[in-house]
């Protein structure tokens, strides 16, 4: 699975570099970013992680420390059972916003599976669409409405 992904990444990266000659600094994830109201459309767990979660938890899942910290996800025992990360992804926790409003069930399963099996983790993946559906609040809050511009 990992090898095939790298091949795809290398290919997309190659095509993208051909299209944008100036952008030698770009990772394939940044290069292939599609912005706009459709939000996140990929159903690939690694792509979702690297274009969303990696912003705070970092590309290798190592987390980060400042005045506060973002927890490492690599080697994090809380990822052993998917119910916990799924609940956080859907509903957010503390400073972390909820992503359930713009990720669908399939995407959250793919992302959770990546958290359990990628980033140096080797937990048995157990995320299901049903677990995600059960984690969703009855009346989801839109965490992306603007209160200030």
């Amino acid at each position: 699975m990992k090898t095939s992904f790298l091949t795809i990444a290398a290919l997309t990266s190659f095509c993208a570099v051909a299209a944008h000659a100036q952008s030698a600094d770009m990772s394939s994830f940044a290069e292939d970013t599609v912005f706009g109201s459709a939000g996140y459309t990929s159903t690939d767990g690694e792509v979702l992680y690297q274009t969303l979660c990696a912003g705070c938890h970092m590309p290798g899942g190592e987390g980060a420390v400042g005045a506060g910290h973002y927890p490492a996800l690599s080697g994090n025992p809380n990822l052993e059972y998917s119910a916990y990360p799924i609940t956080l992804i859907v509903n957010g926790q503390a400073g972390m916003p909820a992503f359930g409003t713009f990720l669908n069930d399939e995407q959250i399963v793919a992302l959770t599976t990546y958290l359990q099996t990628g980033l140096g983790n080797s937990f048995e993946p157990d995320a299901t669409l049903e677990t995600v559906a059960n984690s969703r609040p009855v009346e989801p809050e839109d965490t992306n409405k603007a209160e200030h511009e």
């Binding site: 600094d25 770009m26 990772s27 940044a30 969303l52 979660c53 992306n144």
Partner: peptide, 24 residues
């Protein structure tokens, strides 16, 4: 940007990548 998925996408990038997208 202010909130929303575009902000998360920029956040997951390195500074040089954000600058490149701002130029594009």
């Amino acid at each position: 940007t202010w909130r929303g998925t575009d902000t998360f996408k920029f956040n997951a990038m390195q500074p040089a990548e954000r600058i490149e997208w701002a130029l594009r």
